[in-house]
Design a binder for these strands. Structure first.
Length: 566
RNA sequence: UGUCCUGUGGUGUAAUUGGCAACACGUCUGAUUCUGGAUCAGAAGAGUCCAGGUUCGAGCCCUGGCAGGACAACCA
């Protein structure tokens, strides 16, 4: 019986943000409405850290009967591109979330933002500063020392208005002037020291084209976008915590009812042996250290998808790691556990030999083929069975044979009998070597009585080996991936560039692997378990003549672990 | 010598208005098995950063320390 409840996702774990929202709801805030948003900047591909945020924001909407918007934070045309917009939409959908008709862009609000800036100017709360960025930066002071006021701080609103209109009209060069909010140059919070809210950028914007010469800064665009969309809970990462007073300051200037969006910060995801900054990921892509954003070694959503991760496994992972304000580091093995868990229940089993060693059964009829029956997934009977061809010559894994086996090695060895999965018991009789003493072939005998994998006399064998009939084998390329970095925290070393910790052996290509014929019908991204080895999926690079498989993650292997611990 | 945030087993998270620190991953046993997988059963592992205080009772409250992180882009 198939157990349909097994694939159901467990109830979402609660977290401190849920608690705060419950409290807000109880207090009757925002008329009981809950609206969140996922606000990526389209300047790179989404990664597993974004997945955490996506699951959090859409998860909150789901839990509290609200909605979640997708909003592109596209206020910097020099870094943003349509390619990224498209990839982000695709990735969010693939993860299983739907923003319905609520797709927004900060650029939707450029006019309103500009109007708002004009309002601040008229109220004497914003001014045009003609100084260079260096000067402004110097006047800003340091975290421990207050800043100084700009000489342009007290211009009349008429003059400010005129200057800002001319900035908008493109009269001035980039960098020559900015619009600043007039708050407090002595504030202990750096972000309140007259933050820049508009800068001149004569760049082509992916949506508004050449319409604008001035663009709002993040702080000036984000909260206001939240406000205009009616966002109730604006969830962002810890580094924006110090921005919150500024977020609130702008909202204060805007508010005209009881409604107010609230910013709540949580700790971004850090994974061991992984980098999670778009800047660094871009560097890996641009400098060719990986083969693009969707390289299966990348922690990007597109990379994980290509690697063979499933949306369910990523969602489960997100739920398992929880949400807090503690800046921690999650072990990648937890991510791997999550895919294994899902794929174990869902992946089609198949046999494949990665490092082939030929075996000939000397007492098996020369031209005889047999068709054996194999279970598609022992965890899910409803997936049925399949036929697997068997013949006199086949391949086994080189690792499954040892000429001089140590005590705890259960697999094939001279004179030893093992089971070929779903096939026969075989006993190794001869080891054939070449001039160099390398093993090239094994001779075995088989017990015809053990067809299917069990001997009528009830005798036991200690190992079951996977195999692929030589004449029926589908020759494939298999790509094995290892972690991209050797260091737990590659970006955490002040004196070393993260690239110095790159694992030179993170990609291993095996050009000659043999798989059972069943895989011939596979489509890109189809998941398989190669029995006893791991989970694999078909790569986009496959051709009908030459399938290419990626190893998503190996199976847990207590034998290999015992060897490593020696 | 500022502001803000954080500090619970190896890792990540829990702990109703204070009530003998729970769960997951990992680790280690054992059972079972035609995947050395999966599954099942069990064990070890923290006394909650430190020091005081309030209380019958504190991981939760108070005081003072200590440690770590964020903030000085015309990035987000």
């Amino acid at each position: 019986m198939a157990n349909n409840t097994e694939n159901k996702e467990p109830a979402k774990k609660s977290n401190f943000i849920h608690l705060q929202i419950e409290k807000d709801l109880k207090e009757g805030k925002n008329n009981g409405r809950v609206l969140t948003r996922f606000p990526p900047e389209p300047n790179g591909y989404l990664h597993i850290g974004h997945a955490k945020s996506i699951c959090l924001n859409f998860g909150i909407a789901e839990k509290f009967g609200g909605k979640c918007n997708l909003r592109f934070d596209d206020t910097n045309p020099t870094k943003e591109e349509m390619e990224y917009v498209e990839s982000i939409e695709k990735d969010v959908r693939w993860l299983g979330f739907d923003w319905e008709d609520r797709l927004f862009y900060a650029s939707d609000y450029f006019q309103k933002l500009h109007d708002f800036a004009v309002k601040l100017i008229k109220e004497g709360k914003a001014y045009v500063d003609d100084q260079s960025s260096e000067t402004i930066s110097q006047q800003k002071g340091t975290p421990t020392r207050p800043g100084q006021e700009s000489p342009y701080r007290n211009r009349t609103s008429e003059e400010n208005l005129d200057l800002f209109q001319r900035m908008t009209a493109g009269e001035f060069d980039e960098g020559s002037r900015v619009l600043r909010a007039k708050i407090d140059m002595a504030s202990p919070n750096m972000h309140m020291r007259d933050p820049i809210i508009y800068r001149i950028l004569k760049a082509h914007h992916h949506r508004t084209g050449d319409k604008w010469c001035v663009y709002p800064m993040y702080d000036f665009a984000h909260g206001q976008s939240d406000y205009w969309e009616g966002i109730t809970h604006s969830i962002c990462t810890l580094e924006f915590e110090v921005h919150r007073p500024l977020y609130d300051w702008f909202i204060d200037q805007l508010m005209n009812s009881d409604y107010r969006p609230r910013q709540i910060e949580f700790a971004r995801l850090n994974l061991t042996y992984t980098i999670m900054s778009k800047r660094r990921l871009l560097e890996l892509v641009k400098d060719g250290h990986v083969n693009g954003w969707d390289d299966p070694r990348m922690p990007t959503i597109t990379g994980l998808r290509r690697r063979g991760y499933t949306p369910e496994s990523i969602r489960n992972f997100s739920d398992r790691i929880g949400v807090t304000k503690v800046d921690g580091m999650i072990d990648v093995s937890l991510l791997e556990y999550s895919v294994r868990e899902h794929l174990n229940k869902t992946a089609q089993r198949v046999m494949g030999v990665l490092n082939p060693l030929k075996v000939i059964i000397t007492n098996f009829p020369e031209d005889q083929d047999e068709i054996l029956e194999a279970v598609n997934n022992p965890e899910d009977e409803s997936m049925g069975k399949r036929k697997v061809p068997f013949s006199r010559e086949f391949y086994i894994e080189r690792d499954d044979f040892m000429e001089d086996p140590p005590r705890k090695f259960f697999r094939l060895a001279p004179g030893r009998e093992v089971r070929l999965r779903y096939a026969y018991f075989v006993t190794c009789t001869d080891v054939i070597k070449n001039d160099k003493g390398e093993i090239t072939e094994l001779h075995c005998t088989y017990d015809p009585e053990s067809k299917g994998g069990n001997s009528p006399d009830g005798r036991k064998v200690k190992a079951t080996l996977h195999w692929v009939s030589a004449k029926h084998a589908v020759k494939s390329e298999v790509r094995l991936y290892d972690r991209l970095f050797n260091d737990e925290d590659p970006a955490g070393h002040k004196d070393f560039d993260f690239k110095e910790f790159m694992n030179q052996d993170s990609l291993q290509v095996l050009p000659e692997c043999y798989l059972e014929p069943f895989v011939k019908d596979a489509k890109p991204l189809d998941h398989f378990q190669f029995e006893r080895l791991g989970y694999f999926n078909l790569d986009y690079d496959s051709t009908p003549e030459r399938p290419v498989f990626n190893r998503t993650v190996p199976l847990r292997d207590s034998w290999a672990k015992a060897q490593n611990n020696k």
